[in-house]
Design a protein around this nucleic acid. Structure first.
Length: 279
DNA sequence: ACGCCCACCTGGAGGC
DNA sequence: TGCCTCCAGGTGGGCG
């Protein structure tokens, strides 16, 4: 589920319920996710007030008032659910509700992650930029300074297919398998094209496409979310209609194109594209 | 240094 | 119904 737009949607959904609130209780229902949960997790979080919730790449950064940050990643299957007291009573925990937060306003946030590829870590604010998980990350695609020239520079000399380069968080962050496919389709670029050949106008087009698919998806998530901020509501759960992703064998959506969407496997991941519209 | 491939873990879908 | 195989939105680490 979570690429940048989904993480951003979760962030925006959590802000009104969490920022400025004190965490009165943290229940840890399992010892580890991808990594062991922080030692003395509950003791270090209970009583803290949340100052802000930021995002870097696909990480949520929950800022606590003791200058520590709760770093959260949703992995492949992580979600957050929101419950008021009545809703919490109606929804018993399931086996994948791993961490539960309760605020002084009576709201409960559950981190649920079936596959447990997600993570939660505590780190001092000032240690994050230099943290192993963060130090090699590429630029944020939605930053104004990220343009075609910036992408072209990061693709220079790289002899891997452009699709694989887009998934590499050192190239840029936030793009995952769905939006890599969708952005390449919008830009009319073959997923097999070698990354270093995406320069100049082609890189401009690709950056425009990346920004467009991410923005559009955030807007969709946001609009869905407005209806979803209700007890029992799940954050970041929405489905846009994709042009190519998961549409193998279905007609290419380009007007006048008679081809069907094809699937191929690159670096172990499915790629969906139109062989006629993407060069 | 770089590119490729696997492992991590669970659940859902589809075939027989 | 049950069992098997394949597939899934991420990414760190190990290999050549």
């Amino acid at each position: 589920m979570p690429e940048l737009p989904e993480v951003e949607t979760v962030r925006r959904g959590l802000i009104p319920r969490l920022v400025g609130r004190r965490i009165v209780r943290l229940e840890q229902r399992r010892r580890d996710l991808r990594f062991p949960l922080p030692v003395r997790f509950a003791q270090r979080v209970e009583g803290r007030t949340i100052r802000a919730i930021d995002r870097r790449a696909k990480y949520l950064l929950i800022r606590l008032d003791d200058d520590n940050t709760l770093i959260t990643h949703l992995g492949m299957s992580g979600r957050m659910t929101l419950h008021d007291a009545a809703s919490a009573a109606e929804h018993p925990f399931d086996r994948h509700d791993h961490v539960v937060f309760e605020t002084d306003a009576g709201w409960q946030v559950r981190f649920n992650d079936a596959r447990r590829f997600g993570l939660m870590l505590l780190a001092p604010d000032e240690a994050i930029a230099g943290h192993k998980l963060f130090s090699a990350l590429g630029p944020e695609p939605l930053d104004d300074v990220f343009d075609g020239a910036a992408l072209a520079g990061r693709l220079k000399g790289r002899r891997t297919p452009i699709k694989a380069a887009l998934l590499d968080q050192k190239t840029l962050v936030g793009v995952g398998n769905i939006y890599a496919c969708e952005a390449l389709f919008l830009a009319g670029i073959s997923p097999r094209r070698l990354a270093h050949t995406v320069q100049g106008e082609r890189a401009d087009r690709l950056v425009a496409a990346i920004k467009k698919v991410l923005h559009r998806s955030i807007e969709d998530g946001g609009s869905t979310l407005r209806d979803h901020v209700q007890p029992g509501g799940e954050l970041g759960y929405f489905q846009t209609r994709f042009n190519v992703y998961d549409r193998a064998g279905i007609a290419c959506p380009t007007r006048g194109c008679d081809r069907t969407v094809r699937r191929l496997v690159q670096a172990g991941r499915s790629t969906f594209y139109c062989a006629r519209c993407q060069r």
